[in-house]
């Protein structure tokens, strides 16, 4: 906020307090702040998308500025056509055409991510789990066994073709325990990072905003 104007800092502080007031209960101040936040951000993103997608990407892509030396990128017309099809939903007679770009996006996404997800989310993790069970120290050995058992029992928990009963159910229970311990650790870690965000905001209120407030009034 170093380069923000005093009025800007003042408004930011008031809006921050307005949003914080929700901690007490829903109130008119919060409603005003909420409406400002939504309205401003929606307008911002509308302009941002228009500028970056329609103008910068599409318009300058198909009609490169003189002297840029770039060739028109005709592939961009594919995206433009899909965009126009999307708008067809506003015309009742041909609104079914708007399903095509949706189908294209869903299908293309599934295809594109298949390899990436399969390699990074499955194969790499399996390969990383293949560590020697016996290590140099007792703790390292315990760690290796924990990783192997946690991975296998976790997979058993996510096995949907068999009822969780008997030994299989017991293994699944061990798997969910591993998950819950992991979640607990993750919870604590994330709460700490959220606290740092809160501290940052309070620091703004008590330093920049309070100082600015004193100077203004």
């Amino acid at each position: 906020m170093a380069d923000a104007s005093p009025i800007g800092i003042f408004i930011a502080g008031v809006l921050t307090l307005g949003i914080f007031s929700f901690l007490y209960k829903d109130n008119p101040v919060y409603k005003v702040c909420e409406a400002i936040f939504i309205g401003v951000s929606a307008a911002y993103w509308a302009v941002e998308y228009f500028y970056s997608a329609l103008y910068k990407k599409f318009w300058l892509g198909v009609i490169p500025p003189e002297g840029s030396g770039a060739d028109p990128d005709m592939w961009l017309w594919g995206g433009a056509i899909l965009g126009v099809l999307m708008l067809c939903r506003m015309i009742p007679k041909i609104n079914w055409l708007s399903r095509w770009p949706l189908a294209f996006i869903v299908g293309a996404t599934a295809g594109l991510y298949m390899m990436t997800f399969f390699v990074s989310n499955a194969m790499n993790q399996i390969a990383s789990t293949m560590q020697p069970l016996i290590q140099d120290t007792f703790l390292a050995t315990l760690g290796s066994f924990t990783v192997a058992i946690g991975t296998v029992t976790g997979l058993i928990y996510f096995f949907f073709s068999k009822e969780h009963k008997g030994i299989f159910g017991g293994a699944a229970k061990v798997g969910i325990w591993f998950l819950m311990v992991t979640f607990g650790a993750s919870f604590g870690y994330t709460v700490m990072s959220r606290m740092s965000l809160l501290i940052g905001r309070l620091d703004f209120l008590f330093s920049s905003w309070a100082t600015n407030f004193g100077q203004m009034f």
């Binding site: 194969m123 390969a127 990383s128 293949m130 020697p132 069970l133």
Partner: peptide, 23 residues
């Protein structure tokens, strides 16, 4: 397949490698 790979891989890594298996 993943469970089998993890178990077999861990056993093979224990028996055959000091550095473990990587991708």
């Amino acid at each position: 397949i993943a469970m089998a790979a993890v178990l077999i891989g861990a056993v093979l890594a224990t028996l055959g490698s000091e550095e473990g298996m990587n991708i």
